[in-house]
Design a protein around this nucleic acid. Structure first.
Lengths: 190, 190
DNA sequence: AAATGACTGTTTTGTTCATTTGGTCATTTA
DNA sequence: TAAATGACCAAATGAACAAAACAGTCATTT
């Protein structure tokens, strides 16, 4: 048998999704880039959306790895969460495919893309929630609802990293870490 | 002279904007509802956008009043901010015109509407920032950047009131108050 | 002097139709 | 003979055009 055709298709589709987005990627184009007959794609994937989903699954796995690499059991919980969330959002901010998908989700509202963005957010929330639960068990932080806490943490990070610099000077990583520490861990009370 | 024509126009336009949104409101329609010739509108307002802006100015003034009424100098800073932000966002959630505008901003991205939503957000931020500054001066809370703090507070509230219940059970006012108190004032640290 | 609505140039909307697209399947290939 | 293929098809898309609706003006009316 020649080289793995499924791999070729995945690589071609990833390239095209990253370059043009989901809607603007045609199956003919993917076949052409992969040097494969169009029908061949359908022997490996039920349809366009399933091909897309498989690629996004890989993206989520990559993100999970980035997050896990940011965790150092020696460090405190909030240093770990800060590093993990920061790395995660930087990843999302820099990776070609993530960027294209976020654009397409916002600007065109492509349903398949919105669905996939949900999944990515859910994956991040699950990861953080797990870390929060561990920290509560280890009595590193006060008892609290891990789901709400993970949700708030992610929202604060997205706010500081994406929303704030929409209209203002971007904040440096250290500033973000300090703010996170102040608001979420120390608290504003005197 | 007959009854105040400018007032009639403002009332008619408010009704139409609330019912159909900015784009779907035509000047002919406003004139008809107001029982006024179309040309009359242009003796009071330069164009459609200026009419819209004047109405939104009134909405913002109303919001400011709601926020101010929520502040009780006897109470602590965080009780006051909680009440003010909560009232503000409930107002936004219940008022016909706000609802229509938020919909139109999200779904159609009408530029005039987005612009106006910016203004509303800025008004809220300025109000909270002012309260934060006062609280710092009164040594009620730790020194911090009032602008970032106001920004984070609003984000947390919008997250808890709007975003959270997108996919989960809504949180009650008391729950939101408790969460706000825990995350922002007490801090998660033990 | 204030109010008006018919008028105008522009934008939006509805419609048509040729092209493109996702997906199938009979044929080809190795 | 199993895997690969591309011609093929129904459905979706969008370009092009005509018709309608629109914001804003201004000569006329009140």
């Amino acid at each position: 048998m020649s080289i793995d055709r499924k791999q070729l298709i995945i690589e071609a589709a990833t390239k095209s999704f990253s370059l043009f987005g989901y809607k603007a990627t045609t199956m003919d184009q993917v076949a052409k880039i992969a040097n494969v007959g169009k029908g061949t794609i359908y022997t490996f994937f039920k349809n366009k959306e399933e091909l897309f989903d498989e690629i996004v699954q890989m993206l989520i796995a990559e993100m999970k790895q980035v997050a896990e690499e940011a965790i150092d059991p020696q460090d405190s919980f909030h240093e770990n969460v800060h590093r993990a969330l920061f790395q995660l959002l930087q990843f999302r901010k820099k990776h070609q495919l993530s960027i294209k998908l976020m654009q397409e989700g916002r600007e065109m509202g492509t349903p398949a893309v919105l669905e996939v963005m949900e999944k990515m957010e859910q994956a991040i929330l699950t990861f953080i929630k797990e870390e929060v639960s561990k920290a509560i068990d280890a009595k590193e932080i006060k008892p609290c609802n891990p789901e709400v806490t993970a949700f708030i943490m992610l929202k604060i990070y997205v706010s500081l990293i994406f929303d704030w610099e929409q209209k203002r000077e971007p904040l440096s990583e250290e500033e973000i870490a300090k703010l996170f520490e102040l608001y979420l861990f120390q608290g504003l009370s005197i």
